[in-house]
Design a protein around this nucleic acid. Structure first.
Lengths: 214, 214, 214, 214
DNA sequence: TATGAATGAGCATTCATTCAT
DNA sequence: TATGAATGAATGCTCATTCAT
């Protein structure tokens, strides 16, 4: 047995080091934002020297990208795990929303990095984020489309459906933000409120009831 | 006529210079974000030397704050100008949304600065933005509340109404973002889609029709 | 009669303006030191715009030089006014010291500028200060020399006398500084203490009593 | 032997670098004064990049403070090393003065930084300098007091003794300055001149011989 | 005479990034 | 593998100084 087992092990497999670094980076980026976060702080929090970070994960930008990718993947997996194909479309949406809010509630830092920090960047991060959001919109669009009885809908209708999906996704994001200032609310409440807005509103559209300004 | 009328005037009243500087700053901040924007570029774009910027508008942070304040005020004035108290609640919302999307369509840079850049900052800017959004949410909450026949609603209902308002405001923001990637859509289309989602969905709620996961 | 006589007169003779500026400059320089003093503050305190300062008194360096010259002249005049040629050498020194400490007590800012700020500059100011001090040393050297019975003193003795004069002048300066931290002491006390040190010590030397390391 | 032994070593322990930087800083500060000295020049003279300076010694103000502290400590150690407690008070003063002038003669830059530059600053440096001088005055006061036969001296006498000590310390400083313009004089000469002034004058006071203006 | 408007030039400071060990 | 040591390159900000009126 080692005399001093608590000492930080010097040599760890690359995989472990990378996770340590990414964990630290997510924390630091979520705290200060991309620019105000310093590689020094990341290395300090991770307990790893800076050259290691550069060796394993590349530049600051690369590191940030890796954070975004990992967190986005986790979020997406959580949501899709909730959406079971076998269920009816409304139930799928319901479970997806539930999974989304649950993830946000349990991973505040991840959400902050994804929603706030990454959004304020032109270029690569934005692209990845947009892709993420696009996938979410596609998913929701599918649910909405499948729930309509008349699949022969025209191009105009298709576009409006996608727009609605975008609006729903945006609603969810905004509610998640709003949640930060209203901690008493539960994830379930958020999900059911949004579900009502989404499904009831859309249900009317399906029935041909349309609001018009006149 | 003067042969060289286009020559840039050398001495301008303070008011004019300040506007020049703010215009340039909004442009530069919207392009690069707060941190990557340099005062040098602002001064170059404004056609004004840096010392003038500092003399008239203070530090970089002050300058950014001034941008936010000016643009937010303009946006809010545009929206409230559309919302006439005399109209029915749904018409008020309709006009407000129309004014919102029109403003965003005509002032892309302003919107970028407000929505993307300012959000990624802790501290004072965020506060001001949150206040702005809070005012918008309050406005919408009022419209939704006034449109219900039973004003004796309980606390629970009040909260859910505010949450819906937050969701709607978020939807509008997200749609504005989505718009950037779908330039073919018009502001009118966006407004009417969102109106349908909002009013129809909420209308059902008013009628007591509630979606439940069962 | 003028309706508003209190308004600051716009047009003043050059002489008056220059005095205003110099007064302000001495105050500002004594407060912040040469480098930390800004021309802006000088112009503000003087109630005169910056271009006037440059027109009348030249660059910042020129302005500082003018301050030094004026204050040094005042100080020197005060001291020489105390030293009457008709008196015995020791009485001359006594009156000179009295005048010196009285001036310092009544003109703290002047003294600060002269002693502290001006000393920390290489180049022109130092030269002027050194000249000022050299004149003081010459004056004192004369007093000491005249009080010796044997004017045929050799070069070695002349040099040591000048050194003593330098030491006395330095003592006076240091005591003036020490005074700032001991306000209870009066100018008379300072003068008599220093007089005792100077004259008693020197008197012994004149008498041929010399301290040697045994 | 190595062919290229003169190559500047790239990696040096922190201690060595700090000394290099401090040496360079003392030189540069003594040449230009605090404000006109640029960190660029310090880094250039030290052969070290600016970030190292900031990493090791902090801001420009910190760096200046470190210089003052180091040089003042060296000076004080040199002086106290000369003052042996076992000796008679006059011999102690004699050796102390000798050590002082020797140090100044051998470390012109140090003296310039201590005496000229540091004095022209309000705040912390001044405080430290004043403390230094206060310690010197205390030391001398002790010597003077111990040399008097009547220890039961009253408060008035105590104060005048301290004033004399301040005057002596000031004399030494002034003579050191005067020396810069009279390089032919040796440190020994300076010490003996001042010793004569000091001890002879003070000796008379002890004997009750007092100069009075009448 | 008198000044608000304007700027060139410089300086302290920071940080992502890379050697040399 | 792992890191303390080191830096190039930028950027926010200030100030003495001068036009144009």
């Amino acid at each position: 047995m080692d005399v001093d087992e608590r000492r930080r092990p010097k040599r760890l497999p690359r995989e472990v080091r990378e996770r340590q670094i990414l964990d630290a980076a997510v924390l630091v980026f979520s705290r200060h934002g991309y620019h105000d976060a310093s590689m020094d702080e990341v290395s300090e929090v991770a307990g790893v020297s800076k050259p290691m970070i550069y060796a394993y994960l590349g530049s600051k930008e690369d590191l940030f990208g890796a954070c975004i990718r990992r967190e986005a993947t986790l979020l997406f997996e959580a949501v899709t795990a909730g959406v079971r194909d076998a269920l009816a479309p409304d139930m799928q949406l319901w479970h997806g929303l539930g999974a989304f809010f649950r993830f946000v509630g349990e991973n505040r830092e991840s959400w902050r990095v994804l929603h706030r920090q990454a959004a304020s960047h032109g270029g690569p991060f934005n692209d990845e984020l947009l892709q993420m959001r696009a996938r979410a919109i596609t998913l929701v669009t599918g649910l909405l489309t499948r729930s309509t009885p008349r699949p022969e809908r025209d191009e105009q209708a298709r576009l409006s459906t996608e727009a609605l999906a975008a609006a729903l996704v945006g609603s969810a994001e905004s509610l998640a933000d709003w949640w930060l200032d209203h901690p008493d609310v539960t994830d379930k409440m958020l999900a059911s409120w949004l579900m009502n807005l989404a499904w009831m509103g859309f249900g009317d559209l399906v029935d041909g009831k349309v609001w018009t300004p006149s």
